[in-house]
Write a protein that binds this DNA or RNA. Structure first.
Lengths: 208, 208
DNA sequence: ATATTATTTTACCAACTAGTCAACTATAAG
DNA sequence: CTTATAGTTGACTAGTTGGTAAAATAATAT
């Protein structure tokens, strides 16, 4: 009943675009509305607050990333290494085309919000924590596979290793954004592979 | 001539504290002044803008980190691995005591500003890029030492490896802040060591 | 002791912030 | 066609933002 609207969806994609390329605090409700062609009264008809929009934008970002990147790669029938490589290639291509398009590397929209808001908004922090846990789960599953296939040492701890890989992915994004250089991302796959290598195998002889 | 003042120093340390635990855009000039016990007119006597304060705060953060953490560790006469371990331990201790003190893990103040402002303020982005380059240089030097000592494969590319380690350090900080858990940082040393391990068969040293 | 200069203070600004509200309008369902 | 309801609109807060201008004050070098 009543009339229908696309305002909510438009606001969410504007939030992804504007907050994603700048920051939460640098983008105001008014700008979000102008960019969406929505009046401020409508904004507050659909969202109790700017924070609630951001929470929904975070969900949308994560779903897009899952559907367009994670699921296609991790559901495909390729080797664990190739899965990491595929993620690295997709990440590079994404940052690279963003740079071509708007002139700057924007990094990971989720990681950006994580650093900006984790100490300021507990609800948003928890949402991002959940997203990161799901994201790391993709890595963990493939690490378990690799251990079972004998491609990785049985000494590898899947959980902490998957978190380390996610940390590395986020760190590389941060470097790419800071240097405004997509090429920073091209080292991603090599580093991910190295993090997987269990230390214990070399404990006897080598120092590092 | 004229009178002397500590206002500038007080403003810089307030900036490090307040912007470091929240964010650039979340902390206003007025709050910086109140926290320093300095009037706004004095603020603009010493700094042309909030951005200029931030630039000086960034310098101060980097110098503190160098003097208190990097130099003591990297100038000491311990093995490369132990140097990485020492950095990891100091990072953990710092985040841990911050959490005890103010209730949250704040991560790396420089990395926080990097993600918040890199796409918005080119001058600040460049300053952080320079800091990261100096920081990576510490890692690069020790990697070269390790190669010369035979502790690391001669195939290791010191430059890209040092950047990868810095990426990992920043990524781990990001995870620690997002999960609000200093224990995230304790995996730091293991990951750093693994990133150093060169895959001996890699074709050529890719650029970063 | 004075002139010089660095610093402090107060009051101010225009633009912007997130958020509110009540009147208005379009529409889908009965 | 009516009515209930979902969505739209524009005007409006109250507080904050970064930044300015000029007068007042304190210290220092001469």
């Amino acid at each position: 009943m009543g009339r229908t609207s696309t305002a909510k969806e438009k606001l969410i994609s504007s939030a992804i675009e504007l907050i994603g390329t700048r920051s939460y605090n640098a983008v105001g409700v008014q700008e979000l509305c102008d960019h969406s062609g929505v009046k401020k009264g409508s904004f507050y008809h659909f969202f109790p607050s700017k924070r609630d929009l951001t929470l929904e934008a975070l969900d949308a970002m994560w779903n897009m990333f899952k559907n367009e990147t994670l699921d296609p790669v991790f559901n495909s029938d390729i080797s664990p290494v190739d899965k990491f490589n595929a993620i690295a290639v997709k990440s590079y291509e994404h940052q690279s085309s963003t740079k071509d398009c708007i002139g700057c590397v924007t990094g990971c929209g989720i990681g950006n919000l994580a650093l900006e808001l984790s100490t300021q908004d507990e609800i948003i922090r928890q949402k991002i924590e959940q997203i990161f846990e799901q994201w790391a789960q993709y890595f963990e599953d493939v690490i378990v596979d690799a251990i079972n296939d004998g491609d990785l040492s049985v000494d590898t701890d899947p959980r902490s290793t998957s978190q380390a890989i996610l940390a590395y992915v986020e760190g590389v994004s941060l470097m790419g954004k800071t240097f405004n250089d997509p090429n920073m991302i091209s080292r991603l796959s090599e580093g991910m592979a190295q993090i997987c290598i269990s230390k214990k195998k070399t404990a006897a002889g080598e120092r590092m």
